[in-house]
Design a protein around this nucleic acid. Sequence first.
RNA 1: GGGUCGGUGGCAGAGCGGUCAAUUGCAUCAGACUGUAAAUCUGACGACAUUAGUCUACGGCGGUUCAAAUCCGUCCCGGCCCA
Length: 386
Amino acid sequence: MSNFRHKKIVTKSGVLKTPFFMPDATRALVKFLNNDDVKKSGIVPMVVNTYHLFLQPGMETIKKAGGVHKFMNYHKPLLSDSGGYQVFSLIHKNPNMGKITDNEVIFRSPTSGEKHIITPEKSIQIQFDLGVDMIVCFDDPPPNNYSKEKISKAVERTIRWAKRCLIEYNKQIKKRKLDDKTRPFIFSVVQGGEYVDLRKRCIDGLIEVSNEVGRDWDGYGFGARHVDSEGKFMEKILRATASFIPEKSLRFALGVGNPEDIVRCYQMGWDMFDCVIPTREGRHGRLFIRNKQSKFPISNFQFPNKSKNLNLKSKKSFYETVSIRNNKFKNDFKPVDKNCDCELCKNHTRAYLNHLFRIGDPLGMRLAAIHNLKFYAKLMKELQEM
RNA sequence: GGGUCGGUGGCAGAGCGGUCAAUUGCAUCAGACUGUAAAUCUGACGACAUUAGUCUACGGCGGUUCAAAUCCGUCCCGGCCCA
């Protein structure tokens, strides 16, 4: 039972076809890569982060640069995340780092200790100053293991803040004289943890907000982690949440995910994805290898719904991973993936990459990240062509 | 030749009577990573059994002591200083 779909969205910086994956260029770069590395891997859009760029280099610099596209010299579609996830995660992990009230979030910079305040309005203003193509509401993302009561409160706050975001959004559109061709797309975020009824409530609330303010959300994001407190993929919740989101709106699965999670979400009707996995795991020496025997065998792929360990690394899966630091690659002179034409696989052997990781040279991390991005890009292309 | 300091597990380097199979770092082996406080983090790392436990180990040999990597004697080896 697939609900997948193909959409085309036209942003001021270019056209995107769904489904698409965005690597996280949190601080205006994908770590260790330059823009060409990303482009060559076949990836176009990227995600930058409001919170991180606000702290460094700071908005004065970004504004003087003429926006984040110019600042990082990347003129393809960019989405900015609101910073809600970062600020809340900071405070949830260490309550001394800040204070959350219904009006605002006060927090300390983990690096400088300096005190900052972010409100929903301010997050939106910053995102307009970034000048990106897609922006996200400042939400309240509770950890999945919070009580239902606490998550319910987070849902209500997320809805109230979404309203403030959308009102501010309209103000900024007016103030900056933007039109439908030049305005950024705006996404609200759906919270509700592992509870279908709360997810439903959140979406109903968000739709009500859009009616009250008089502007539709361009899309809805899936908030909080999409794996439950035990690490299991939240199949039911993701499926239900996708079905609650209006058909015409984009569905953005924030933070999703590993390859099988992306495929599953796609089949449920999610359109957009971003995740640190390909780049972070690449930097940590884990490489994705497509299973050679076929195209991504998605149509006949059996998802073992319930188990945490999906066993997708077995022969049945469409991919496997290798830890290139492992000793067994020390004298392995094959390419990482003989069917891959990325910079790494075209030019270097597993033994060489193993060596680069053993000596800790950044080149290894860069090549591995490029390879993994290419793997993701190819996956998305196959999904687009389904 | 005289004096002096030292020889500890793959390496570096703690420990200086019992709680030491021995702190720590590196190296090694494996694992984790999901809107990036992540070039990060976790675990293993004498042998065999692998729950318990048993053995062999802090240069060699011999002592003191209920007990020694730790104290004493001696031998071997190395650094530095003086002749």
